[in-house]
């Protein structure tokens, strides 16, 4: 039964996952963490970090990790296959009629509403995930600095993850004397 609902959940996510990797996170969070409780919120965030520092598509990394956590290799195979099932069917259909799809006004019209919605969805995900993650002055300051580095100075995600690990080690372990406000 769990395998069936695992497959169905990931198929649904894949069917509406416009915009790639990050735009899928709100769907993952709501269905995997909230509805089914297959993964805790902090493990979900750790999973995103792992997806960033390993090669490959982020959504495939996420689906594999979640599936493997829940039901081992079979679970990982099932979630990954389910995630791509609907899009692959659509791509196959479109590939027979590329010209018509390209000129389609309907596709462009749908995206005028979808594009801003994706930004809103991703912000919603950042907001709900931040509740356990940004919990004091130091984590808030780190968030501001990391965001500036990413947006203003176009720093690659991997150095930002490494910087986060160094920040965590210095502030939240006993390597250095305790900082105020921790």
């Amino acid at each position: 039964m769990q395998l069936v609902s695992l497959f169905f959940t990931f198929m649904l996510i894949g069917a509406v996952a416009f915009g790639g990797g990050y735009a899928m996170l709100p769907l993952f969070e709501r269905m995997i963490v909230d509805t089914h409780g297959w993964l805790s919120r902090s493990l979900f965030i750790d999973m995103i970090a792992l997806s960033q520092v390993t090669p490959g598509p982020i959504a495939i990394n996420s689906a594999t990790f979640i599936g493997f956590q829940i039901r081992g290799v079979l679970g990982a195979f099932l979630t990954t296959t389910a995630l791509v099932s609907v899009p692959v069917a659509l791509i196959s259909l479109v590939s027979f009629n590329v010209e018509r799809f390209k000129r389609s006004q309907a596709v462009q019209a749908i995206f005028t509403g979808l594009r801003p919605a994706l930004a809103g969805l991703i912000f919603a995900s950042a907001y709900s995930l931040s509740s356990d993650t940004i919990f004091d002055v130091w984590t808030f300051a780190a968030f501001v600095v990391f965001s500036l580095l990413l947006i203003r100075f176009r720093v690659h995600p991997i150095p930002i993850i490494i910087l986060g690990a160094v920040f965590g080690l210095l502030v939240y372990s006993d390597l250095l004397p305790a900082l105020p406000f921790v």
Binding site: I45, A49, A126, I134, S147, I160, G168
Partner: peptide, 20 residues
């Protein structure tokens, strides 16, 4: 280390939203 890495992840997600 992961306490810090999670902050990086929130910044990455926020940035992805901001770019759109």
């Amino acid at each position: 280390a992961f306490t810090g890495v999670r902050v990086s992840v929130i910044a990455l997600i926020f940035t992805a939203g901001f770019r759109i």
